[in-house]
């Protein structure tokens, strides 16, 4: 990155207070991917940036600095924030946490940026929420070099009427349908649908959820996602 870059589109994933009046911002930018930047004086009463530097607001940012930690030197909001509620809000928090934890600073990831932007747009729609989340997870996996190759372990094309199990580092292993019945088994037709970005069938969404969870689990290690727990607790409190 040049010493002071031009304005570029960005989203704030999270900001934490730094010293007395500054903040440390985790940004997802279009050109530089995930960037950690210091925003000086943003927490003072008079700061113009204070209202702008909020998650889920489409931003234009200008960054400076040669080290991994940049300094934010320009900030504009291009539109009003996405106001999210309930499940949509928790899903957005989940996306923020996932990207904040797994994306490494300084690697361009324009597809992840696009899918994240699309996700915020689609979260309010119940029907689109899940596919948008899965698409983001899959492009994040792609970015991390962990995307699944949609063929079986022997390199053959996946069969619509077969059942598969995801085996880490090997791929999809065909299993006889009668051998075991487990939620971890993935139907071939659903995998084909995921590969072609076709989310109409509810079974496809379920299979994609199972699959992305299996793929993300080793990357997340043994530290559980807080937003997933929050989602569960929220569900529990409403059902009680």
């Amino acid at each position: 990155m040049l010493q002071a870059s031009d304005f570029q589109p960005a989203w704030l994933l999270h900001a934490r207070p730094y010293r007395e009046t500054s903040a440390l911002a985790w940004l997802l930018t279009l050109e530089d991917g995930r960037v950690d930047a210091l925003v000086r004086g943003v927490r003072t009463r008079k700061s113009r940036y204070r209202a702008l530097l909020q998650p889920h607001t489409p931003l234009l940012v200008r960054l400076s600095g040669q080290h991994e930690l940049k300094t934010l030197i320009g900030l504009e909001a291009t539109a009003a924030p996405h106001w999210l509620q309930g499940e949509a809000l928790i899903c957005a928090l989940y996306a923020n946490e996932l990207l904040g934890r797994l994306l490494l600073p300084g690697l361009p990831c324009s597809q992840v940026f696009r899918d994240y932007s699309l996700l915020l747009e689609l979260l309010k729609d119940d029907q689109q929420r899940e596919p948008a989340l899965r698409r983001l997870e899959l492009s994040l996996l792609e970015q991390l070099g962990q995307a699944p190759v949609f063929s079986c372990t022997q390199g053959h094309v996946l069969q619509a009427d077969a059942w598969y199990r995801w085996v880490p580092e090997q791929g999809f292993l065909a299993v006889p349908a009668t051998q075991e019945t487990s939620a971890a088994l993935l139907p071939g037709d659903c995998l084909q649908a995921i590969a072609t970005d076709d989310w109409r069938d509810k079974r496809t969404r379920q299979a994609a959820k199972t699959l992305t969870r299996q793929l993300l689990a080793p990357l997340l290690g043994n530290k559980p996602l807080q937003s997933r727990q929050l989602f569960r607790q929220m569900k529990k409190s409403t059902s009680e």
Binding site: G86, L89, I90, L230, M234, S237
Partner: peptide, 18 residues
Amino acid sequence: PTLEGETTAQYLVELLAG
């Protein structure tokens, strides 16, 4: 009126709904 404050409020709304 921050993301965290909103999240807290929404959670409380769900919690107090009954």
